[in-house]
């Protein structure tokens, strides 16, 4: 394999560090999954990218899988990467990060492919969502907000990330749960926290639905107040009641997981599932999750498949309710 071309290459590129060569060569480990490619459909530095890199790190450290690479294929909230994954022959070990945002983007963007075209592997984590306002907001409790919102559905502005994303879904589900027509909801999108934070603090928008980790620092410093958390239970690090406790019949969490190209063999699939199962049992991974303010939510096999199916239906119905599609 490495006969003539490599020597020519080295002769021509003599100025290059020798140690850098052979970077794409196949590994030699005999057992388990090796040289797994994790495709991230988002730019480096984002939530999905961080998760993939942290997982790759743990997989290596705990000897679960050697040579895991993270490849970013950003575009349209993961739609571009999904399309490429679906067209992938599945010859090499490859998984793609997925989650609420990807499901949302695929539906919102009217993509010709969907997650139903992939091989579901596993869900790995859940992230609690919060309903939050500025510390000096007139809405002291969820009840205050709900009351004001019901009185003037168009006048109360909700803020969050992209249309169709987890923040958006949370707001629409909350509106529906308290009897507000989602089409009247005034949802303002902000790209990242840079403009959203001052908009909240300056009182330009009424409230935001967001992941807890994003605002953990502001919550700790007291500049942002959490009216409710959206999961089944309260968060250990946060003194805020759930939606249910406050009489709103709704639980909602953001999740993340992995899918593989369609048509891979049962054996391959089983090995990938096994890999994430081992990750799930790794104490190192549990520490990473805790540091990130995320929760382990391992699920695989038919269970995850059904879950993924339900998720896609949910997103479609939310967007349809809001009059988007």
């Amino acid at each position: 394999m490495r006969r003539l071309p490599r020597s020519v290459v080295l002769a021509v590129a003599g100025c290059l560090a020798v140690s850098a060569c052979g970077v794409t060569a196949q590994g030699r480990q005999e057992t388990g999954v090796r040289n797994l490619t994790m495709v991230v459909g988002n730019s480096p530095g984002g939530g999905y990218d961080t998760m993939a890199r942290q997982i790759a790190d743990v997989l290596g450290k705990d000897d679960i899988a050697a040579g895991t690479r993270v490849v970013n294929e950003p575009g349209a909230g993961g739609t571009v990467a999904l399309q490429q994954l679906v067209n992938d022959g599945g010859s090499r070990a490859k998984v793609m990060t997925t989650g609420v945002a990807v499901v949302g983007a695929v539906v919102t963007n009217n993509a010709p492919v969907s997650l139903a075209d992939t091989t579901p592997i596993a869900r790995v984590l859940e992230e609690p969502m919060i309903i939050a306002v500025a510390a000096d907001s007139p809405y002291r409790t969820l009840d205050d907000l709900v009351e004001a919102w019901r009185a003037d559905p168009r006048g109360i502005t909700a803020a969050g990330g992209a249309i169709g994303g987890p923040d958006y879904q949370q707001v629409m589900l909350l509106a529906k749960a308290i009897g507000i027509d989602p089409t009247t909801v005034n949802f303002v999108t902000y790209d990242g926290g840079g403009e959203l934070l001052p908009a909240i603090l300056g009182g330009k928008v009424a409230f935001t639905a967001s992941g807890y980790a994003e605002w953990a620092d502001q919550i700790a410093s007291g500049s942002i107040r959490v009216l409710a958390v959206s999961g089944e239970q309260r968060l250990s690090e946060l003194d805020a009641p759930t939606l249910r406790e406050q009489g709103v019949d709704l639980t909602y969490t953001n999740w993340r997981g992995f899918v593989a190209p369609p048509g891979i063999s049962e054996d391959k699939r089983a090995r990938l599932v096994e890999l994430f199962d081992q990750l799930h049992r790794s104490p190192e991974w549990q520490r990473v999750l805790e540091r990130n303010g995320q929760q382990d939510a391992f699920s695989a096999g038919p269970e995850f498949e059904e879950f993924l199916d339900r998720q896609q239906g949910l997103v479609k119905s939310i967007l349809a309710d809001a009059g988007l599609r």
Partner: peptide, 28 residues
């Protein structure tokens, strides 16, 4: 050749970005 190979390895070792190796996968 120097430009193409140089940029490939510079990206890989400097930034950890793997430009597609294509049919040279395994050789580079």
């Amino acid at each position: 050749a120097v430009l193409a190979l140089g940029s490939f390895y510079l990206f890989y070792s400097g930034l950890g970005i793997e430009l597609p190796a294509g049919i040279l996968q395994g050789v580079l």
